[in-house]
């Protein structure tokens, strides 16, 4: 029994029929081809699949696509504005905030949620806000530096 949903993703509105049990991340990846959102676990514990749903960070591996009906989603593919990198993307690049890159989309979107809520986070606040996102490569050191750079650049800092 398919269910009709209407979701805005990265500024485009999609009306699609989906199976009720289809995970949001599989809808984004397999049906919309937005493979920038990665899957690292199936228990919402690694954060690789983090996307913004109505501006808030959500782990799309533990949300059903039908639950996203009527919402507006931003994935890593939709973060650039007018071809310019988002300050967080730029900062992750500048500060060597990624190595293998697999956790990076989720990490950047979790950080985007943080900076929307708290434009001037301390190091401790950054670390607390990112504790739902696992990075196995960087030891978080340069990720924290990247979020600080982005906060400064975005006018918080």
């Amino acid at each position: 029994m398919a269910v009709q949903i209407r979701v805005e993703v990265n500024g485009t509105t999609y009306e699609r029929e989906v199976e009720p049990r289809l995970l949001l991340v599989h809808w984004l990846r397999d049906e919309l081809g937005l493979t920038g959102t990665n899957v690292g676990c199936e228990t919402s514990l690694c954060g690789a699949c983090t996307v913004l749903v109505d501006g808030r960070a959500v782990k799309s591996c533990t949300q059903l696509a039908v639950q996203a009906d009527g919402s507006s989603i931003t994935t890593i593919e939709g973060l650039q504005q007018n071809g310019e990198l988002h300050p967080l993307q730029q900062a992750f690049w500048d500060q060597h905030g990624l190595q293998c890159g697999y956790c990076t989309p989720g990490m950047i979107l979790a950080a985007a949620d943080l900076l929307a809520q708290n434009p001037r986070p301390s190091e401790a606040e950054i670390r607390a806000a990112l504790k739902g996102n696992v990075c196995r490569c960087t030891g978080y050191h340069n990720i924290v530096k990247a979020v600080r750079q982005a906060a400064e650049q975005m006018g918080g800092g």
Binding site: L34, T35, G36, T37, N38, V39, T75, I76, E77, L79, Q80, L85, Q89, F92, W93, D94, H96, L98, G101, Y102, T104, P105, I108
Partner: peptide, 17 residues
């Protein structure tokens, strides 16, 4: 700065899955 990064920070990195 790493030349790997522009693809990876924009979701254009292509992993096996």
């Amino acid at each position: 700065k790493r030349r790997e990064d522009p693809a990876l920070i924009t979701g254009r990195g292509r992993y096996t899955d």
